[in-house]
Computed example of a mutant assay.
Amino acid sequence: MQKIDLLKNLNHKNIVKYLGSIKTETHLYIILEYVENGSLASIIKPDKFGPFPESLVAVYIAQVLEGLVYLHEQGVVHRDIKGANILTTKEGIVKLADFGVSIKLSEADDNTHSVTGTPYWMAPEVIEMSEVCVASDIWSVGCTVIELLTGVPPYYDLQPMPALFRIVQDENPPIPDNLSPGITDFLHQCFKKDARLRPDAKTLLSHPWIKNSRPVVC
Results as ranks from 00 to 15, higher is better:
D157N: 14
R166P: 11
T24W: 03
V76C: 06
E107K: 14
H113Q: 01
L149M: 07
D194G: 01
Y120W: 12
I103Q: 13
T112L: 02
D80Y: 11
L56F: 00
V57W: 06
Y155Q: 10
L87V: 05
I93G: 11
V35T: 07
E171H: 09
V134Q: 05
R166H: 15
L149A: 04
V132F: 06
P181A: 01
C190D: 06
A135D: 08
L148T: 09
F49T: 15
P160A: 01
K3M: 04
L204Q: 05
G182L: 08
P199K: 04
L158E: 11
A123M: 02
G83L: 10
P173Q: 02
H188F: 09
I138A: 01
I15G: 11
L28M: 04
G151C: 06
S102I: 01
K48L: 14
I127L: 07
V152I: 05
Q189S: 11
I93R: 14
I31M: 14
N178P: 02
G67C: 07
Y18R: 08
M161W: 09
V126C: 09
C190K: 03
A84S: 06
T150P: 03
Q169S: 12
A58R: 15
K202P: 04
K95C: 12
E73N: 15
G83S: 09
D157L: 12
E66L: 12
L158T: 05
H207P: 09
E147T: 12
N212Y: 13
A41L: 12
I175T: 06
Q189V: 00
P174I: 12
K95F: 00
V59Q: 15
K202Q: 13
K8D: 03
T89V: 05
C143Y: 09
L68Y: 01
L187D: 00
Q189E: 10
T203K: 15
A108T: 15
P199D: 02
P46A: 04
P160Q: 04
V126Q: 06
P176A: 14
I167S: 08
L56V: 15
F186M: 02
Y29R: 12
H188V: 01
H113R: 12
N9T: 12
L105T: 13
T24V: 05
T118I: 06
Q63N: 09
Q159C: 10
V77K: 01
A195Y: 08
G75W: 01
D5W: 10
D47L: 06
V152T: 13
P119Y: 04
S136V: 08
D200W: 08
L56W: 08
P53D: 11
G67L: 04
S114I: 02
P173L: 02
I4W: 03
D47T: 14
N9C: 09
V69D: 02
S140A: 15
S42P: 00
D110E: 13
M122E: 07
E171C: 03
F186Y: 08
S140P: 13
M161I: 12
V134G: 01
W209K: 09
T184W: 02
T26Q: 14
I4H: 07
W139E: 05
E171Q: 08
D157Q: 14
P176N: 11
T116L: 05
P181M: 02
G75C: 07
L179R: 10
C133H: 07
P119T: 06
W139C: 07
C218T: 10
N212F: 14
